[in-house]
Design a protein around this nucleic acid. Structure first.
Length: 397
RNA sequence: GCGUCGGUGGCAGAGUGGUCAAUUGCAUUUGACUGUAAAUCAAACGCCCUUGCGGCUACGUAGGUUCGAAUCCUACCCGGCGCACCA
């Protein structure tokens, strides 16, 4: 078919079940499909890992398909055992609701909740909460323990003598039931969700004799297979400022450059291919490509203007070693000790921490370019730099 | 319910009467190097006053034994595993 469609079913996609042809066929026939993405609100912000399937979803929306963003407000309380070597602490519904407070707004940078083909925003507690024990049992009778046990992380836990709770077994069933309850045509998600999503496919087939398609997206990961995550500290959150996003991308390892372009930006596939070639043949400085990636990525979420500003801000701070533009200004009294000021503003975590930094000559007064060398130094007017990333502007009242 | 093993710093995981603020790995911070990073190397990494082979707080909770406990004892709380049913 046409070019757009080509990207639609290829770019960033890990696999399509039952097959790409199956889905292509439906689209070619002009069917209006209902497709959903489920997110468990386990944290207060959406991050790039969520944004990747949301972005794909938006492509479907633009083509006139119906899309649903499903909040797993019920399932989040149980906790998806995927990728967890230990049982996750269960969340209360209140915590979950507070987590997802901003999701809709954050997602609306990519998909539209307004207009004639508005995306729907749903909650799975609506049907899961109402289920009776009998309903649960009949659902549970559709799946075997062996099927569940096949999952690696269960095997691993058994080996390590760690507990597996029954409710964790139930998780894929619940997620699968979402498909049945909403009677969707398809589901999209990260390829770490493959098992759960296929579970829904099975259920839909058994219960409603409907063939649900499943699209799994590639994950943004380096070649050691380590997913980017909060623990890595460089996971872009959709609540980040353009500057923060830009900075985080720049701290990614080089291997993420090409996947980053493919998964998170609107740069054309051809262009990406070219860049990939250039990288391999060392024709370009990876840094320059990464800067382009950072720019393009910020553009997707915040627009061109903000992206440009973020870029300039970053260049000033790091490349030219200048001070970032908008650093917080702290008003102090004459004679205050620098330690106290920094401690009160949480720029150092304790007085001991401060002393260590002084010993390491990590604190510099940029106005006269002198290192702070005494523990008991009084504050001076001017800009201080602590390590590489922390800055503060001090103003004596 | 019975038996048994265990609860240690952000996490993982040593330590089983004194030299333990507690080995080590990961994470983190800082410095060097660089392409901004990554990798690598060096250092730091409970808090407080800094003068110290300093003070304070910490090894699930509460008591106890001891000159001295993360280490021993008692009770309690929490967890794993096994057994008890199907045989």
């Amino acid at each position: 078919m046409n070019k757009i469609n080509d990207d639609l079913l290829n770019r960033g996609i890990s696999s399509i079940y039952p097959s790409k042809e199956f889905l292509q066929n439906k689209i070619d026939k002009g069917e209006k499909l209902t497709i959903y993405l489920g997110i468990d609100p386990t944290g207060p912000t959406l991050h790039l890992g969520h944004a990747i399937p949301i972005k794909k979803l938006s492509e479907f929306q633009k083509m006139g398909h119906k899309i649903i963003l499903l909040m797993g407000d019920f399932t989040a309380m149980i906790g998806d055992p995927t990728d967890k070597s230990a049982t996750r602490k269960q969340l209360t519904h209140k915590e979950v609701m507070s987590n997802l407070k901003n999701y809709k707004k954050q997602a609306s940078t990519l998909i539209s909740f307004k207009g004639k083909n508005a995306a729907q925003f749903k909650f799975n507690s609506k049907w899961l909460k109402k289920m009776k024990f009998g309903d649960v049992l009949s659902l549970a009778s559709k799946m075997t323990v062996q099927q569940m046990l096949e999952r690696d992380m269960f095997e691993k836990r058994i080996e390590e003598g760690k507990p597996i709770y029954i409710h964790e077994f139930m998780y894929p069933l619940m997620q699968g039931y979402d498909s049945v309850a909403m009677n969707v045509d398809g589901e999209i998600g990260g390829n770490d969700q493959t098992f759960n999503m296929l579970c829904g496919r099975d259920l839909l087939k058994t219960i409603k004799n409907k063939d649900k398609f499943v699209i799994t997206m590639k994950l943004l990961e380096d070649n050691s297979g380590k997913k980017m995550g909060k623990t890595e500290g460089n996971m872009v959150a959709l609540s980040d400022t353009p500057e923060e996003m830009y900075g985080k991308v720049m701290s990614w390892t080089d291997e993420l450059i090409i996947p980053g372009f493919e998964l998170c930006t609107d740069v054309s596939s051809v262009e990406i291919e070219n860049m990939s070639e250039e990288l391999k043949s060392n024709k370009v400085n990876p840094r320059d490509l990464k800067m382009k990636l950072a720019y393009e990525l910020v553009k997707v979420f915040s627009g061109e203007e903000k992206a440009q500003k973020a870029k300039e801000g970053w260049e000033n701070t790091f490349s030219k070693k200048e001070i970032p533009e908008d650093i917080s200004e702290i008003g102090v009294n004459k004679g205050d000790l620098l330690v106290d000021v920094l401690l009160n503003n949480e720029l150092v975590s304790s007085k001991s921490d401060f002393r260590r930094l002084v010993d390491e000559k990590a604190i510099t007064n940029l106005d006269n370019d002198e290192k702070v060398s005494s523990y008991n130094e009084e504050v001076k007017d001017g800009v201080y730099r602590i390590g590489k990333k922390r800055f503060c502007k001090i103003k004596i009242k």
